[in-house]
């Protein structure tokens, strides 16, 4: 009597252990092919990318990068390439390190950031093309390369509220100098150490603000609540469409030229075949300022998932 109970219990333990193990294995293999969420996945099993080595794309830690990562991922998958997206990795410095250490194969980077934050080249280039050429020359020394740059550019810019601009009579960055150390300037922590950031603002414009480190997502909240007077915004920010803010002009071009170019392991261009670079360049060529602003708005204002927005854009342009 007692004995049969024990036997049943033991059988139970074993059954559960086996069931859990099988469930874990089964579900892990079925989901391991996918690490990002995406609607109505159109991943093709045929096409020029079929059978090519899998690619790991990374992206940095803000809305526009999530969209870019999803755009390249889905366009490549539609051509049969096997792609994993590692989203939201971190700042440029961290994401670039993920690329050079082999954690990822490619990520979308801004040409000016590549030059200043990564290469440490602080001589402001005079054109977008010059920036691209210099950035390309730098990464090629490190076994990397860049594909075509996008038509749109997303440069950093200092933003103030309309009220602040009127009260203090500021329209350009040099106008901030008179506010001295009482000026509270917000930005991501890495802004403090970049030339296209605090370093350049000090050198080129003689600013000496109090720096307030901010997480990227809370900059507009910080200026609305008065925590900062001005902050490091992006020219493609959806919030700028509200008309509440003014971007200060940058006559000495401390923020440089910031078109996007995917930076990747140079060997990928050969191992993945010609359709790889063609597909990516095709996507990049479609990314005008208008297109990226509307996609940013769909994510930042309408709260749609980056992958959903990327899918709609690619589908409309016959690339999904």
């Amino acid at each position: 009597m007692q004995r049969s109970n024990y036997r049943r219990a033991l059988a139970g333990v074993l059954t559960v252990a086996v069931a859990v193990a099988v469930a874990a294995c089964g579900s892990s293999s079925s989901s391991s092919s996918k690490s990002s969420s995406k609607p109505s996945s159109s991943a093709a099993t045929s096409g020029p990318g079929a059978g090519k080595p899998p690619i790991v794309i990374g992206d940095k830690n803000f809305t526009e990068e999530y969209i870019l990562g999803s755009l390249y991922q889905e366009a490549l998958e539609a051509k049969g390439f096997k792609v994993t997206l590692k989203g939201n990795i971190g700042s440029s410095e961290i994401t670039y390190k993920a690329l050079t250490s082999g954690q990822i194969d490619m990520y979308p980077e801004y040409t000016g950031t590549l030059l200043t934050a990564i290469a440490g080249d602080n001589k402001p280039p005079t054109s977008a093309q010059q920036t691209y050429t210099l950035a390309k020359a730098f990464v090629e020394k490190h076994g990397l390369t860049v594909l075509d740059q996008t038509p749109f550019y997303d440069s950093d810019a200092l933003a103030v509220t309309k009220a602040f601009a009127a009260k203090n009579h500021v329209a350009s960055i040099p106008d901030l100098k008179k506010l001295g150390h009482s000026l509270k300037l917000g930005g991501a922590p890495e802004f403090a150490t970049r030339f296209a950031g605090l370093v350049g603002l000090k050198q080129l414009y003689g600013l000496n603000p109090t720096f307030v480190p901010l997480a990227i997502g809370i900059t507009y909240q910080a200026i609305d609540t008065g925590k900062v007077d001005t902050f490091d915004a992006f020219t493609t920010d959806a919030q700028l469409t509200s008309g509440k803010y003014v971007l200060l002009s940058d006559p000495m071009r401390v923020f440089g030229f910031q078109n996007v170019a995917p930076v990747l392991k140079a060997s990928l261009v050969n191992t993945e075949g010609p359709a790889f670079a063609q597909t990516i360049n095709q996507v990049s060529s479609l990314l005008t300022l208008d297109a990226i602003r509307k996609m940013n708005a769909a994510v930042a204002l309408d709260q749609q998932a980056p992958a959903t927005v990327a899918h709609q854009f690619l589908a409309a342009n016959g690339l999904a």
Partner: peptide, 25 residues
């Protein structure tokens, strides 16, 4: 300088525009 696809990209309405996202906006 930067080649644009002929006629530029088709930009969809992304889910119907503002009126579909009143709560979110």
């Amino acid at each position: 300088m930067i080649a644009l696809a002929a006629g530029g990209p088709v930009i969809p309405t992304f889910g119907g525009g503002g009126s579909s996202f009143t709560c979110e906006r």
